[in-house]
Structures are given as C-alpha cells and as structure tokens.
Amino acid sequence: MMTKLINANTLKSFFLKLFVFVIIVFMLDRLAGAMLKNFYFKQQAGSDYLTTYVIDKTTADLLVFGSSRAANIFNPVIFETQTGLSCFNAGRYGEPIFYHYAVLKCILKRYKPKTILLSFDAGSFNKNQESYDRMAPLLPYYNDHPEIRDIVTLKGPFEQVKLLSCIYPYNSLLLPIISGNTAYGKQKSTHLKGYIPIADTFTGEKETIDYTKKTMLDNKKIAAYNAFINDCKKAKIPLYIVCSPYLINSIGTDASIIEAKKIAAESSTDFFDYSRDPYFTSNPRFFADFRHLNESGVEVFCNILIQKLLLPPVKYFF
C-alpha cells in the first residue's frame, strides 16, 4: 500500500536530506556543547561558579543551604569566628528544595561536612511550576553526577530527551558564562564565602500576608525535604533547619512552615523558627526588604542564632 501512496525515490531523497540535517545538527550540538562545557567549568565568578565550587571543591565544616534568604542572611565569617569551624554559604537565589537536595547529594558523595544549616522559607512547599523550572542550574551537572539524575528529571517529562543535546544544559547561560570568564565578572562578584550582603534599608510599609487561605502543598517538595533530613541523618551530620525573620504582619501561619516543623519534629531535627520573631519584626532597620535582612540585621541575627546553637547541651557543631 505504501508504495502506491509514496514514491520510493521521493522517500529515499527525503530521508537522505533528513539524515544530513540531523547529522549537521548533531555535530554542531556536540561541538558547541563541548565548548560551552569547557567555559562553564572554567568560570571564576557568578552563581554557576559558586554552585560548581560547592559541588566539586568546598571542604567547609559548616555548610548553609537555601535560597536568597540563605545567601543574603547567613554570614560565614560570623559563624567561623564564633564556632571555629570553616563555613561556606551554598545558598542560591530563587532555588527550591530540589536544588538543595541535589547539591547535598553531590557533596555527600565527595565528603562529610560536620554540620549543615538549611534555611527554610515560607511557602517552600507550595505547588508551582516555577520551582521545577528553577532546577535548570543543575543541568550542567547531570552527566557527571548520576546521583542527581532522579531529581533533575522531575523538571519535566521530557527532560531526558532534551538532555540528549549537549547544548541544552547551557540554555540561556551564554552571557553568564562569558561574564564568569572575564575580569568584569570577577569585579562584579561581591560574595564572601557564598554570602551576598545587602546594604539597603527597608523604607516601605509592612505588608500583611494572610496564611489562612487554603494552600496546595507539593508532595514532591515535601519528599525532597524529608530526603534531605534523612540523608543527613544517615551520614550522621547534625542538621539544623532555620526559618529566618520576615518583616510582615501575618494572619495565621504558613502551611509550609507548619508541615516542615512537623516533619522535623518527627525526625528529631531542630527547627528554629524566627519567621515572626517580634524583635526583628518590630525593627525594619534590620531589613533590606520584607524577605531579606540587611548587613546589620544579619550581624544581629547570626549572633543570636549562634548563641542559641551553642547553648547546652552542646550538641551543635561538634
């Protein structure tokens, strides 16, 4: 039947042209992908450089995980001075629990930190597609770190197909790669062992957030959070989960924080909730915006947190 409908010569010519097209795309993809990979891992500045450093190089005793509220709030210098432990802030802007868990898995394969702090945000377990899209920074590590593949594939049903391309892991990373390989990128880099200070002071009005509205929680995020705790337990690494202060008037309590506290309690993990600490919520001068403490707020908060962690029984850090 097929020969009646389709001329054999036409079909042959079509498939030959298609084959040539696919081969050219394949070869260019390999070539460009190899170049991008080379320059990606040569970066000396930027968020991707910090991720590579945390995954492949750091040997710090104390590691801080979390989103921008980790990167902007936990100052490793204060932790090092007060505890005598080397510290690195592995926080990355906008990243969800999937990212932190994937990075933890890579680190545990290489070495065992003495202590881990996980910064927890309100709304961390809320269902949204963005959290899955935000796993893109893990793509360059997919091939060399098989331990994170099951997490990365949560990004989408066709992620494994997309990852057949060598360019795809570096999608939208061309400019950061150029920046990270130039003096300009180094000049722009302001982090102190992963900590990115903010000098601004909040000048607006405090917002009121109503947490009583029903929120859908994402079971995959909760599972990743559970796995993060369990992996630390298995590796016998003390884990402390901290929810740093917000400058808001809240009605009710965030459903993610309630759930995270419950899970932490079930696994005997300490959860320090400063999200509504009156000392901070009544002091806007400690904040850069309603989610992030500024440098002076960080100084106060880190010292308060460390004092709490150093209280007897001295189970923390050692």
Binding site: V25, D29, Q129, E130, S165, Y168, S172
Partner: peptide, 12 residues
C-alpha cells in the same frame, strides 16, 4: 535549531 536550544526560553 541550535540557537533555539541555546537561547530559547523553554520554561512555561
């Protein structure tokens, strides 16, 4: 095609 893969926006 390569430009689409390299600089296209794939999320959402």
């Amino acid at each position: 095609v390569l430009l689409i893969i390299l600089v296209g926006v794939f999320d959402g």
